[in-house]
């Protein structure tokens, strides 16, 4: 059956490049799939895969989701109740947490337990910007992630409550979770759509879930 991948448009950042990377992967690998951008929560009902991107501040992103009537409910139906393949990227990953301490204290979706906290900046440039390595830390996930460099831009990180939800870690002053996972739900702190061939490989593996 043809896969339908929906990238959720809730007013956050440059999602066109995310769409372009998915299109490229579909074209290159001749996959029976289609990628669309949508702000319509009803669209999630017919989707096989959902991607939640995110750029900027946690609070703004969360408000963006809340401002679309029915969006959080449909996301919850899709990823939690129906347990379909779900990808959160960058702030889209951070939104999966219970809370964030970025400029105040804000509630997230709470799908993967933990809190979003500021990276300790002792003598390090902020944001953490550029290519950095991911290391598998033992947690099993359906997707196998290649231990190489991916492109990061962030100042906050996902402090995961349960070790079993951490798939990979990355070092920047501390070891922080760069990929979190709970069954069908994946959260990536880096940008696979900006991480060259290894990033596209992750997108391919996600589409093929």
């Amino acid at each position: 059956m043809k896969r339908l991948i929906t990238i959720v448009d809730y007013g956050s950042g440059n999602i066109l490049s995310a769409k372009k990377s998915f299109s490229k992967v579909i074209e290159k690998n001749n996959l029976n799939a289609e990628v669309v951008i949508s702000e319509n929560p009803k669209f999630l009902k017919n989707s096989s895969h959902v991607v939640l991107p995110g750029q900027g501040a946690f609070k703004t992103c969360m408000e963006g989701l809340k401002n679309i009537p029915g969006m959080i409910e449909e996301l919850d139906n899709f990823a939690v109740k129906r347990a379909r393949p779900f990808f959160g990227i960058c702030v889209g990953m951070q939104l999966l947490a219970d809370t964030s301490s970025e400029n105040g204290n804000h509630a997230g979706l709470g799908w993967i337990h933990g809190s979003i906290e500021k990276l300790p900046s002792v003598d390090l440039k902020m944001p953490h910007m550029g290519w950095n390595t991911i290391k598998n830390v033992g947690s099993k996930s359906k997707i196998i992630f290649r231990e190489t460099d991916y492109y990061f831009v962030h100042s906050y990180y996902f402090n995961c409550k349960k070790r079993e939800n951490v798939v990979t870690e990355t070092y920047y002053g501390i070891n922080f979770p760069s990929i979190v996972n709970k069954e069908n739900i994946y959260g990536l702190q880096f940008h696979p759509e900006k991480s060259s061939d290894q990033g596209l490989e992750i997108i391919k593996n996600f589409i093929c879930l």
Binding site: K20, S21, Y151, K194, S195, G199
Partner: peptide
């Protein structure tokens, strides 16, 4: 470019 190049 954005359709062909997947780095920042």
């Amino acid at each position: 470019t954005a359709a062909e190049v997947f780095i920042p």
